[in-house]
Design a protein around this nucleic acid. Structure first.
Length: 668
DNA sequence: CTTCTCCCTGTTTTT
DNA sequence: CAGGGAGAAG
């Protein structure tokens, strides 16, 4: 049944004259969502249904209605998404939109905790641990507890951390998780629990917070400090949460508390695009929103403006076969008849050559490189293609996978800066001390213990100069102290601080990596230009942990001089929310996509299906799905060659099948 | 103690 | 195919 809305009194009383023609610019459902300003609203927004547009107009509507932009909070999946929306809103109603607070849950938690962490005992200078840092800590505690020397193999740092993190993000406990899903760890449960406690203490004592802690601590401060909770709830009177299907219970709790005094929350999401369950998200959470906020107004956006009809038909066919009922269907508004193509390739090389050749053809047809994307399930799936693109001088950026910021040399430089920001950061001290020649883990720990009693950085540096242990590294230690002094001094710009560290570090790096230091030096140069954009060391460091530059290693070199636009290579996860004229999805082989890890569990298999749905719905006009046959997979010992099970038995009018052959015949 | 080398294991997605 | 553990040499 259709709904007809009686306007609330608060809205009718104010006879605001709007400059924007909301009715003309938005369809019925979008208009409904953008102009309902009071109370809880849940927007189920299908792919390409103008979700971003709706949010942008809602921000504009709020501002036009006289709401102070500083009272609006826009939580999105990446900071870039938030910035883009606010930029567009600013074009509509003016620059004041830039005062809207926007970003990810984690970055919001970070900024709240820097200001209001005291009541729960968190110092404002705390350091954020990224995944690698957290693993370093767990490893340290693991070997300190002698767990590495056990008769029975103890789980690796990565597995341990995954367990701890999953417990937090699913709002459950380690014992329960071990019982339900990590049965193979049952024998180690006691040790794991002790380790978890030690990990917690270690972080607390040294003012460290990992990603999960940011959410947990924000929840805690909202729960335990009435003052803070009330102040924040009064500050942020209008809350919008994008990509709600990928939030978890902890995040939902946070939203619930933030909105406690007013219930003005709009959640936007799409249950069929939920692809982050490995991070504790559950697509059913989106349905719980109505339970959490009684009286929720439900709006569905089902008109798709992005893709041609045949592409949508394929998308609908894929998701139709999901055993669980979904909440909406997509109707095409875009004309055009580019039919999706399923392309069989002889092997991986042929697939890469096909993609490269087809991209160049499209370019001749007027589709420029920056309107094309190649998507894949796992980051390494594009390695061979990257070589082919390089060979043909096709410039690209790669999103997702290993990041520039995660390379050892960048982390080394960052560690120097982090020690200055938080002198109790043992992980970073350890890291920079180990760089010195002739200084190993034992001495590093000794020196850190010697430093630890210092009240601040100045004290620590003084103790560093007076280190009792002497060795070949004594002189280096003094130089390190000089550099740290320089980084700590108040009237030095961030760029100069970073330059000082790089100047100190590069000679060591040449010694450490005699083979490839030129490449690494280029990365460091790139990092210098990034750092120069920051006014304080603190913001540089939190940004590098929370929103690191998304580019991965390769393109730092490539991106510099190309003006023409770049082809995008991306994991499907990193392609979320984006769109291109032409999209290629590669490696659609059963075992790769769906990934063989997830073949046995229905929940996981369904997430793979949604992953394909997300990839397909990124395309506007051209869609190619490709798979190589005859692939030997070393890890499983299997020969892969069957197309993805999600594509099996689709009628020919939905998907046209093509086989790639060599010029001159079927044989290679 | 530190550093080098050799062998084994286990491979997704991200804040 | 690297990351890490074990063992040997400096």
């Amino acid at each position: 049944m259709e709904t007809y809305t009686l306007r609330s009194r608060a809205e009718t009383r104010e006879t605001v004259r709007y400059r924007i023609d909301y009715r003309g610019e938005l369809n019925e459902a979008q208009h409904d969502a953008a102009t309902t300003l009071q109370g809880p609203v849940l927007v189920i927004a299908g792919a390409g249904s103008g979700k971003t547009r709706t949010l942008v107009y809602r921000v504009a509507r709020l501002v036009e209605s006289g709401v102070n932009p500083a009272q609006v909070l826009l939580l999105t999946f990446t900071r870039k998404a938030a910035e883009e929306m606010l930029r567009r809103a600013a074009i509509l109603v003016g620059a004041s939109c830039e005062h809207v607070s926007g970003g990810t849950f984690h970055s919001f938690a970070n900024s709240v905790l820097r200001r209001h962490g005291r009541p729960i005992g968190l110092s404002p200078g705390f350091t954020i641990l990224d995944r690698g840092d957290s693993e370093d800590v767990v490893n340290l505690l693991r070997s300190r507890a002698g767990l590495d020397k056990k008769e029975r193999r103890f789980p690796r740092k990565g597995a341990i951390l995954e367990l701890f993190s999953m417990a937090v993000n699913r709002s459950t406990s380690v014992p329960e998780l071990v019982e339900t899903t990590y049965g193979h760890l049952a024998d180690h449960l006691e040790d794991l629990l002790r380790l978890e406690q030690e990990y917690r203490t270690y972080k607390r004592e040294r003012s460290l917070a990992d990603y999960d802690d940011l959410l947990v601590l924000l929840r805690d401060v909202l729960r335990d400090s009435r003052d803070v909770a009330e102040q924040l709830s009064r500050t942020y009177r209008y809350i919008m949460v994008d990509e709600y299907q990928d939030t978890n219970r902890l995040q939902a709790e946070i939203v619930r508390t933030l909105a406690a005094t007013h219930d003005n929350v709009m959640a936007v999401g799409d249950d069929s695009q939920s692809i982050y369950s490995f991070r504790g998200a559950n697509f059913r959470n989106i349905m719980d929103f109505e339970k959490m906020f009684p009286g929720t107004r439900l709006v569905k956006l089902e008109e798709n403006y992005r893709s041609t009809k045949p592409i949508l038909e394929l998308a609908n066919a894929i998701i139709d076969r999901a055993p669980e009922k979904y909440t909406k269907v997509l109707r095409a508004r875009s004309t055009g008849d580019g039919k999706p193509m399923l392309v069989q390739c002889g092997d991986e090389r042929a697939q890469s050559r096909f993609i490269a050749q087809r991209i160049l053809e499209l370019r001749e047809e007027g589709v420029s490189l920056d309107e094309v994307a190649v998507l894949f399930r796992s980051s390494y799936h594009s390695f061979d293609l990257e070589l082919e693109l390089q060979k043909r001088d096709i410039p690209f950026v790669k999103r997702g996978g290993f990041k520039f910021i995660e390379t050892a040399h960048i982390k080394d430089v960052l560690a120097h800066l982090r020690v200055v920001a938080n002198p109790r950061d043992a992980v970073s001290w350890h890291r920079i001390l180990l760089l010195l020649d002739g200084l190993g883990p034992k001495t590093a720990t000794e020196i850190f213990n010697h430093l630890a009693p210092a009240a601040d950085l100045a004290g620590a540096v003084e103790l560093l100069r007076a280190t009792p242990r002497r060795g070949a590294y004594t002189k280096e230690l003094a130089r390190l102290a000089d550099v740290l002094d320089e980084v700590a001094s108040d009237n030095v710009p961030v760029a100069d601080k970073v330059a000082a560290v790089v100047g100190f570090y590069v000679p060591m790096m040449r010694h450490l990596h005699p083979e490839d230091h030129p490449k690494r030096e280029k990365d460091l140069e790139h990092f210098l230009t990034i750092a120069a954009r920051y006014r304080t060391l603190g913001t540089l460091l939190s940004d590098m942990a929370l929103e690191p530059p998304t580019d991965s290693v390769g393109d730092v070199l490539a991106a510099g001089d190309e003006q023409e636009g770049l082809l995008t290579l991306s994991t499907i996860h990193s392609a979320k929310g984006l769109e291109w004229e032409a999209v290629f999805v590669i490696w659609l082989v059963d075992g790769r996509f769906p990934s063989y890890h997830n073949l046995h569990d229905t929940e996981e298999m369904e997430e793979e299906r949604r992953l394909l749905y997300v990839s397909v719905t990124r395309a506007k006009r051209h869609l190619h799905l490709s798979y190589p046959i005859d692939v030997y997979d070393r890890t499983t010992g299997m020969v892969l060659g069957k197309p993805s099970r999600f594509l099996e038995g689709l009628p020919g009018h939905i998907l046209s099948e093509t086989q790639v052959v060599e010029e001159g015949g079927l044989d290679q």
